[in-house]
C-alpha cells in the first residue's frame, strides 16, 4: 500500500533527523559539516538496525503538550520529595500495591509514553506490560489501603488522557474524554 509506505518513510525521516540532532548536540556546535555527518551516521545506523514500525496516527498539539510537560515536571518534583522524605522517616516501613490499569488507547506509542512517564514519576514502577490487552501492571509505593490504590488508578488514567491529548488522533482523544473510566 502506498499510504503505508509513505508513513514508513516519514517515520524513518523523523528517526534520521532525531539522530542527526543528537549528533549535533554531541559536537556542541552547529555547522553544515556536523549536520551532514549526522545525517550520514544516522542513515547508516538505520540501515544496519532497522526500526520496528511505530504507528503515529495523531498529531502534535503544542498547548496540550506544554500542559503535559508542566504536569510531568510538577509530578516529578513533588513525588521525588515525597519518596526522599519517606527514606528519612526511620522506623516506618512503607507498604506497596500492584494494580493493573487498562489503558483506553492500547497503541504501542501510547503504552510506551505512558509507561515512561509513570516510571519517571516516583511512587510507581512498571512490573509487567500486557501489550495485547493494553494493560500496565504498576507497583505503587506507600499505599495503605484499597481506596488509595483506586485513587492512584484514576491518576494513571488522567495521565493517559494528558498524553493522548498531546499526541493522539482525534478518535483517541474522544475515547479518553467521553465515557470516563472503563
Amino acid at each position: 500500500m502506498t499510504g503505508d509506505a509513505r508513513t514508513r518513510r516519514a517515520n524513518r525521516a523523523v528517526a534520521v533527523l532525531g539522530m542527526a540532532l543528537v549528533w549535533i548536540l554531541l559536537w556542541g556546535t552547529f555547522s553544515w559539516a556536523n549536520l551532514l555527518g549526522g545525517l550520514v551516521v544516522a542513515g547508516i545506523v538505520l540501515l544496519v538496525f532497522p526500526l520496528p514500525p511505530v504507528v503515529f496516527a495523531g498529531r502534535l498539539r503544542p498547548v496540550p503538550l506544554a500542559r503535559f510537560v508542566a504536569w510531568f515536571l510538577r509530578d516529578l518534583f513533588v513525588a521525588s520529595v515525597q519518596i526522599a522524605w519517606l527514606a528519612f522517616r526511620f522506623g516506618y516501613t512503607p507498604h506497596g500495591a500492584i494494580i493493573g490499569v487498562g489503558l483506553r488507547v492500547g497503541t504501542d506509542l501510547n503504552l510506551t509514553l505512558t509507561a515512561e512517564a509513570l516510571s519517571l514519576v516516583p511512587g510507581s514502577l512498571i512490573v509487567e506490560v500486557d501489550r495485547a490487552e493494553g494493560v500496565l501492571w504498576i507497583h505503587v509505593l506507600d499505599v495503605r489501603d484499597r481506596a488509595e490504590a483506586e485513587r492512584f488508578r484514576q491518576d494513571v488514567l488522567a495521565l493517559e488522557s494528558r498524553i493522548v491529548a498531546a499526541v493522539g488522533s482525534p478518535d483517541e482523544v474522544r475515547r479518553t474524554t467521553e465515557g470516563g473510566v472503563l
Partner: peptide, 16 residues
C-alpha cells in the same frame, strides 16, 4: 525492606 521498594528509591529521587 524489599527490592521493589528499593527500586522506587533508586530510579526516582535519583533522576531529579
Amino acid at each position: 525492606p524489599d527490592i521493589l521498594s528499593r527500586m522506587h528509591a533508586a530510579t526516582k529521587p535519583q533522576v531529579l
